[in-house]
């Protein structure tokens, strides 16, 4: 369980995140949704202390994260982001196994875990284990990035637009993979995106942010039925319109 209490990040001349309070239940996927500059990525990075909050608190299973050494905190939290950041001088196996290795797992266990994860993200272990990152396609890199985030069996997963830079078909396949994985592993995750459709598809609940503040948090149904204000209503209008167009085609109507 993740609890954010009055979390605030202030820079010299701006407030990136303003007194944000949220709860993510165990086994829940919470999507942080908003336009660029709304503070969603800053919020995410304050959870694993890549950014230190100005004030407020993050609790992980009841424990204040400020009391945990940053590197050991991060070893218990999976992290995947849009740029992926695979280490170019390490093989796929080396990249996936990096956190288990830092935790001192025996080599055999690391190897087993790497193969299991490659299968989980639908990459054939024998064919991919020894490849270098530059020998992978964008989608394959993202799969390896996701496997690396899951490697040390983290209690919590943080994802920052992990599928943002991919073409629609690849993104769709990866979203489906992610859905399958999370239901299999019962993951607790915070997922940052600006894509409304992705939010609806993957989130158990969605937290809409604007200018560093929380606008509304609720299930996709709640957001669709009872949007709190024009901003949320506008956000929901786009996928609704797209869905209506699709439906009409499927019914054989046309425009």
């Amino acid at each position: 369980m993740i609890e954010l209490e009055e979390l605030t990040k202030r820079y010299a001349d701006s407030v990136a995140v303003d007194r944000l309070s949220l709860r993510v239940a165990a086994g829940e996927v919470l999507v942080l949704l908003g336009g660029s500059g709304c503070g969603k990525t800053t919020t995410l990075k304050m959870i694993n202390r890549l950014i230190e909050p100005t004030s407020g608190r993050v609790r992980l299973d009841g424990r204040d994260t400020a009391e945990i050494e940053p590197h050991s905190l991060r070893r218990g939290i999976g992290y995947a982001f849009q740029a992926v950041g695979l280490f170019p001088h390490m093989s796929v196996a080396g990249n996936i196994g990096v956190t288990p290795q830092l935790l001192g797992w025996p080599d055999a266990r690391v190897r087993e875990r790497v193969d299991a994860l490659l299968e989980l993200v639908e990459l054939e272990p024998a064919g991919f284990r020894e490849r270098l990152p530059h020998q992978l396609s964008g989608g394959q890199q993202q799969r390896v990035g996701l496997a690396r985030a899951l490697a040390a069996e983290p209690r919590v997963l943080l994802l920052d637009e992990p599928f943002g830079a991919l073409d629609p078909l690849t993104r769709d396949r990866l979203q489906q993979s992610f859905q399958a994985i999370r239901s299999r592993l019962g993951l607790t995750a915070v997922f940052v995106t600006h894509d409304m459709v992705e939010a609806l598809l993957l989130g158990d609940r969605i937290a809409v942010m604007r200018d560093g503040a929380l606008v509304q948090v609720g299930t996709p149904e709640q957001l669709l039925r009872e949007p709190a204000g024009d901003y949320v209503a506008d956000l929901m209008a786009t996928p609704r319109r797209q869905a209506e167009v699709m439906e009409r085609y499927l019914e054989g109507g046309g425009r």
Binding site: L50, H71, R75, F87
Partner: peptide, 25 residues
């Protein structure tokens, strides 16, 4: 910078980041 962020994100200490990522690269 993405690699530095990744190194921090996977839980490397500053020393490990230097030895395993920054110096080799």
């Amino acid at each position: 910078p993405a690699l530095v962020e990744a190194a921090r994100g996977v839980g490397m200490t500053p020393g490990q980041r230097l030895a395993r990522v920054e110096l080799p690269l």
